[in-house]
């Protein structure tokens, strides 16, 4: 059964009672919440995702709840709990959606150490994976969204997940977009749902793009690494693609990994294998259409 098979009232009931068991790739979340706008938005962002049976094993039981008393009613705060425990500060109710998405990512980054977790968007075409890395603000999610809408399969927006065999696993969760990128992607969304924008004091406007159905349906298919692109968004720049040193790329990616240090020698082996199999490139761009054209051209047909 998929999320979209349930009626709105059934989804609301399941969310309110904690019986909403969402499968995203290898992980199952039991979600409990009645905080608006989640019961209205989750069914749209996650419409094509499978639901686990109610007696299925759950990786992450998460609650987003309004605390009692002043914090809940006056300050309009919301708590995010994993397994009934607080792990971080409460947030404002108007940020429920971005914090829900951020919280689901946090569960993986803190616990899913069977994977080497790299800070990169990951996509696939013809069985080969494309990792898009870069500093915050480089445009990783924007480009990942545009490529996803232009025929690439989304593996994950936030993480590249490298399994023990060195293959890239998929989550296909919604893509988080910020500020100007929201309208850029909205113009290309082509029927894919783009959720409501929330304003965060730290990050500005945040909205989430529903992943294409094909990405969700093929979430169990892994990909061989093919390319690792360090992305640089530079306003006014010409499109420029250049080879990068594998050793220096590895150091950058390791430094920005969520758990490379934790995995020790195994993390080193996996990352060496990934870098060795990947064509490492640096892309500077300012025009999203030009960049999409590049990735859909001859340079990225095969590594």
């Amino acid at each position: 059964m998929r999320v979209g098979d349930l009626s709105a009232s059934e989804i609301t009931q399941r969310l309110a009672s904690g019986r909403f068991r969402l499968r995203t790739g290898p992980f199952t979340y039991a979600v409990r919440t009645n905080i608006a706008p989640l019961p209205a938005v989750i069914p749209q962002l996650y419409r094509d995702f499978p639901l686990a049976e109610e007696d299925a094993l759950v990786d992450f039981p998460v609650n987003l709840v309004q605390p009692s008393g002043v914090r809940g009613w006056l300050l309009r705060e919301v708590d995010f709990l994993l397994g009934g425990h607080f792990h971080f500060e409460p947030f404002q109710r108007r940020l429920a959606l971005p914090y829900f998405e951020w919280g689901l990512n946090w569960c993986i980054s803190q616990h899913a150490h069977q994977y080497l977790l790299l800070h990169a968007a990951s996509l696939e075409r013809h069985g080969r994976g494309l990792l898009i890395a870069g500093h915050s603000g480089a445009g990783k999610s924007t480009l990942a969204a545009a490529l996803t809408l232009a025929g690439w399969r989304l593996l994950s927006d936030e993480f590249a997940m490298v399994d023990a065999a060195g293959e890239l696993a998929a989550l296909a969760r919604p893509i988080s977009l910020k500020n100007e990128s929201i309208e850029l992607v909205r113009a290309r969304a082509n029927g894919n749902y783009l959720g409501p924008a929330s304003h965060s004091p730290r990050k500005g406007q945040i909205a989430h793009l529903q992943p294409p159905r094909e990405s969700v349906e093929r979430v169990g298919e892994r990909a061989q690494p093919g390319w690792l692109v360090m992305l640089h968004y530079q306003p006014g720049s010409k499109l420029a693609l250049a080879p990068l040193s594998k050793a220096q790329t590895m150091m950058h990616v390791a430094f920005h990994s969520f758990n490379y240090g934790l995995l020790g020698s195994d993390g080193f082996s996996r990352l060496v294998q990934l870098i060795d199999q990947s064509v490492c490139l640096r892309l500077t761009y300012s025009d999203l259409d030009e960049a999409v054209g590049l990735f859909n051209g001859d340079d990225f047909k095969r590594p």
């Binding site: 594998k246 220096q248 150091m251 390791a254 020698s265 082996s269 060496v272």
Partner: peptide, 22 residues
């Protein structure tokens, strides 16, 4: 020490410190 060399550049991992160096 665990080594990987690409051309003139190497990365090395020390099992003692857990650090990777270029």
């Amino acid at each position: 020490l665990r080594w990987q060399t690409w051309g003139d550049e190497s990365v090395v991992f020390s099992t003692l410190t857990g650090d990777t160096h270029y």
